[in-house]
Computed example of a mutant assay.
Amino acid sequence: MSTNQARPPLPPFTHDSAVLKVRLAEDGWNSRNPEKVALAYTPDSQWRNRAEFVTGREQIAAFLDRKWKKELDYRLIKELWAHDGNRIAVRYAYEWHDDSGNWFRTYGNENWEFDENGLMQRRYACLNDMPIKESERKFFWPLGRRPDDHPGLSDLGL
Results as ranks from 00 to 15, higher is better:
80 L>G: 01
52 E>K: 08
103 W>C: 03
17 S>I: 11
60 I>G: 06
77 I>R: 04
107 Y>N: 07
52 E>L: 14
92 Y>G: 04
23 R>C: 14
42 T>S: 13
47 W>E: 08
84 D>G: 04
27 D>T: 15
40 A>C: 11
17 S>Q: 05
22 V>D: 06
118 G>Q: 12
28 G>R: 10
126 C>Y: 13
16 D>N: 09
71 E>K: 09
155 D>F: 14
46 Q>L: 13
12 P>I: 12
66 R>A: 07
137 R>D: 00
61 A>V: 08
120 M>L: 12
54 V>S: 00
136 E>T: 12
124 Y>K: 07
2 S>T: 15
116 E>M: 05
138 K>E: 13
95 E>I: 03
9 P>E: 00
93 A>K: 02
14 T>E: 10
125 A>C: 10
130 M>H: 04
113 E>D: 03
126 C>T: 14
34 P>L: 06
109 N>H: 14
147 P>L: 03
9 P>F: 07
120 M>W: 07
113 E>W: 05
158 L>D: 03
57 R>D: 07
17 S>T: 15
127 L>N: 03
43 P>W: 13
146 R>D: 01
104 F>N: 02
2 S>Y: 14
87 R>T: 01
55 T>C: 04
94 Y>R: 11
131 P>G: 04
78 K>T: 10
33 N>F: 07
149 D>R: 12
45 S>W: 13
9 P>I: 06
68 W>C: 13
51 A>N: 11
10 L>R: 00
64 L>D: 00
68 W>K: 07
152 G>S: 10
45 S>P: 06
9 P>N: 02
108 G>C: 02
106 T>W: 08
152 G>E: 10
67 K>L: 15
65 D>K: 14
118 G>H: 00
139 F>Q: 01
155 D>H: 15
126 C>H: 12
101 G>I: 01
